[in-house]
Amino acid sequence: MSILNSLGDVFGGDKQADRIVPPTGFTARLTSFTAAAMAFLTVFALALSLATGRLADRWSAELAKTSTVRISAPEAQLAAQSTAVLNILKTTPGIASARLMTEAEQHALLEPWFGSDLPLETLPIPSLIEVVEQEVGPDMEGLRLRLTAEAPGAVLDDHTRWRRPLAAAAARLRLLGMFSIVLILGATAAMITLAAQAALAANRQVIQVLRLIGARDNYIAKAFVRRFTMRATVGAFVGMLVGMLGIFALPAAAEEGAFLTGLGFRGWHWMIPLVIPPIAAFVAFWSTRFAATRSLDRMA
């Protein structure tokens, strides 16, 4: 409650008290610029974090519930082994469906690598069976053993070796994004603290006069806190707006698009950057208060 009251004092308190601190153009611009730059970077870090989150979810969702059985066998045995595999899959608990991919589908898969002109029918292409798992998937190890016994040319690929590093990379990226935001907040706090300390040192004479006429340290600190919090809030608001415009101006994200085209906010996520100015205000409030308390103690 006291924090809310203090922030309330900053935004709605004694406006006249703000005038006791002389306007200092350089630190004012420095604080506003720092807050704006940090808010701008935070918007991008947020966008990166959210996009990687979406990517990790998509990869997990798309890959987690599907598997592929590849059958490489002499042409004479290919059909028989494929049928055997399909039969096994139909009787395996945890499998929703299994179907042999058509020749056209296989061609479509290989086309990006070999081009459309290559006569694929002349190549010894393995058969592919697409498996869709149920919510609780099959016992993969058991299934592998059964397939090896019934169809020696069958290899089960549950995409784990693809999914794990991709999901891990996406999770790491998300973590890095969050860590970047924490670093940005820390750097903002440090820079505002330094700017506030510089302002307090530059206004040593003002502080002496105020003390001489009976001002409490809390009153003096509030005047500085109010000024720096307002500057940081306004700077952060501008930085947030510019950052959001930058994200908005990125190429539209297509479902099949690559990661970069998906960097942005979707739906209610556009609301998340709106918390940046209040957080900047909070950080500036405590940074300046810390700097003011320390400086006033030293000047006592």
Binding site: P22, Q208, L210, L212, I213, G214, A215
Partner: peptide
């Protein structure tokens, strides 16, 4: 210090505030 008025040789004003604002400053703080 609110019960002791102090006048210095060098006055010690806040030069960015008007004379009236300076005089009212003790009341404000």
């Amino acid at each position: 210090r609110r019960r002791i008025g102090v006048v210095h040789q060098d006055c010690q004003f806040l030069d960015h505030l008007s004379v009236a604002e300076n005089i009212l400053l003790p009341s404000q703080v």
